[in-house]
């Protein structure tokens, strides 16, 4: 069961790693790469805490083997810097009390950002549907949904104003 050599681009930096075939991406991120913002909850794809971006698309890092991600571009919660949507989401999460213990938050933000980008016209019901794969044991979801909807609405207004000018 020999280790395999892989290359990943993680948050913009190329990383060469030796991994075991059984290592899930989440374990490699949290272990050798010390990016502990990616949280691990259920380890079978259900809770969403481990959600990150693989090649620009949201994915569960608990059920993607690091070996099969060789060559991929990975972005974790640490890697969004001042991405415009992420900044708006962080502010909205703070304002709307969308987190308490914070365990679910990295996954919520990564999925929330995908929803804002992919579904610029989503209403509250659609946001709830899209966020249903991320579990939160603290907040009761209201603040989270409100925060994401507020970012969508603000961007819609900005779009309209842009179009009127």
């Amino acid at each position: 069961m020999s280790r395999i050599d892989i290359t990943l681009t993680v948050n913009g930096e190329p990383r060469e790693l030796k991994v075991e075939p059984r290592d899930q991406l989440a374990d490699v991120l949290r272990g050798p790469l010390m990016l502990t913002g990616t949280h691990v909850g259920c380890e079978h794809g259900v809770c969403g805490a481990c959600t990150i971006e693989i090649d620009g698309a949201p994915a569960r890092s608990c059920i993607a083997h690091a070996g099969s991600c060789d060559g991929a571009t990975i972005r974790t919660i640490e890697g969004f810097g001042d991405d415009e949507i992420m900044r708006a989401l962080r502010e909205a999460f703070t304002r709307e009390h969308a987190l308490q213990c914070g365990y679910c938050t990295p996954g919520m933000l990564v999925v929330g950002r995908d929803v804002v980008r992919r579904l610029p016209d989503a209403d509250e019901a659609r946001v709830r549907e899209e966020m249903s794969g991320n579990l939160c044991r603290c907040t009761g979801y209201r603040g989270i949904v409100r925060a994401i909807v507020s970012v969508i609405v603000a961007r819609r207004h900005a779009r309209r104003e842009g179009a009127c000018r």
Binding site: P21, R22, E43, H44, G45, R60, C62, I63, S68
Partner: peptide, 26 residues
């Protein structure tokens, strides 16, 4: 065979599946 591992991954993590080798089709 391993595809998206969205079913195989959970089975491996729960040790419901213990293959000697995975052939990654991706």
């Amino acid at each position: 065979p391993g595809a998206g591992t969205q079913s195989l991954g959970p089975m491996l993590n729960l040790r419901l599946a213990r293959p000697d080798t995975i052939a990654d089709l991706r």
